[in-house]
Design a protein around this nucleic acid. Structure first.
Lengths: 226, 226
DNA sequence: TCTCTTATTATTGTTAACAATTTATGTTAT
DNA sequence: ATAACATAAATTGTTAACAATAATAAGAGA
């Protein structure tokens, strides 16, 4: 936990994005961040550069840093990439998961189900994401894990932007059935289910209208007077 | 070209890595870079943060920035990730490639073949990488394209570290045959060939001994006296 | 009341100096 | 000659002040 201030900022922003406390378009002012994390602006700027490399923050010259607002095309690309990564991940999981991993999966299903009852949307979103990241960790491919981490963040932004208010959480039973096929070591079925699951999420999204009251980025997009 | 100095540094370092002018472990001093690109150290530091986010540079506190030296495990993860991404990419290519794209592919094959005759290894490596990135561009998924870009960089580092001296370039005819199956719109065959192609590259690598005379990172790894 | 202009404020970008730490150099002793 | 130690140089990390630009507020005129 005694990490560098820079890593702290990155981590906190990613966390906030992943459970939708930070919405697309929100401005991330340098002073605000340096105050919040008790560090100088140099650290803030490097953190923002890192977040920009992760593609969850847009850096606009002379204007500042803003939480990214993915377009529909970008969103669809993200989902296709997730299908590519997660089908490979699930294959790794089935081949490599040991008893401890299976236990972890079962435990997660329980907590995820419990959280869902609480009607606490941010918590539910986070739990849902955790499931996918747990699979990635069990898959033991750090490259896929890292990339999926980024893509789940961006998925959070996408759902926050275009998603319906109450749905768009991964269906509880779909996760459970994926775990079932993992336990059964049924590779083909597990891959199909993961792919279908991701498609369901994508299908629930309505790109025809983005959820308004988005952050100050809408201001940014109008051409500056002059 | 009139980009920010920071973007310039990132681009140049990535270029140098991708055609193996920069080897794994090489130290990237801040002063050296700020002199070279005629900018202040603040810019250099942000560029290094970005490169570190791309996983092609390791940032070691109080010690500096070094070109990353992928382990065998990391290398294998990179190759598996490439298979996942590139099989999806090739599917996109087959579904979306228009005449201009096909022409571009044919043109590339020609230049790649010509370059190969010159016995100019860096140029050949670059041409080889360009083929894969051309496919990614034709696939029209910016997420996959971005990630593949990073992974081809890391592949360059891996081959530079563990690869044989003269081989480990993508086989000329394999590229050509991939293009053939694209033109034939044979999805299954193209996917198989891409996967086999990537496996061939991986198989040529000998992890038992890393190419010595690696950079100063070997010094870094010995525990500091004290 | 609305719009255009002007002045003020806030924010981003740059620079230079300083502190802290590591690396390199050179000396001494075994 | 090698190893340990002390000194000097170079490098990373931090900080504060300054300049340049953009966002905001205020005021004048239609």
């Amino acid at each position: 936990m005694a990490d560098t201030p820079e890593a702290m900022i990155v981590e906190h922003v990613l966390d906030a994005i992943s459970d939708q406390r930070l919405r697309a378009g929100t401005k991330l002012g340098e002073q605000m961040l340096s105050d919040l994390f008790a560090c100088n602006r140099a650290n803030v700027r490097r953190a923002l550069a890192t977040l920009s490399a992760y593609q969850v923050v847009d850096l606009i010259p002379k204007r500042g840093a803003f939480v990214a607002t993915p377009s529909e095309k970008e969103a669809r690309d993200v989902f296709q990439a997730r299908r590519a990564l997660e089908t490979t991940i699930i294959r790794n999981v089935i081949r490599q998961a040991d008893d401890a991993d299976i236990a972890a999966l079962r435990a997660h299903l329980k907590t995820e189900h419990a959280v869902r009852q609480l009607q606490d949307r941010p918590k539910a979103i986070r739990a849902s994401r955790t499931f996918h990241m747990l699979l990635a960790r069990i898959g033991r491919n750090s490259v896929l894990e890292k990339y999926l981490s980024e893509l789940t963040m961006r998925t959070s932004l996408i759902i926050g932007l275009y998603g319906p208010t109450h749905a768009s959480l991964c269906a509880d039973d779909e996760h459970a059935r994926i775990v079932d096929s993992i336990i059964a070591r049924d590779e083909a079925r597990a891959q199909k289910m993961v792919e279908a699951h991701l498609r369901h999420i994508e299908d629930e999204i309505d790109f025809t209208q983005e959820n308004t009251r988005l952050g100050p980025l809408s201001d940014i997009l109008r051409p500056a007077a002059g």
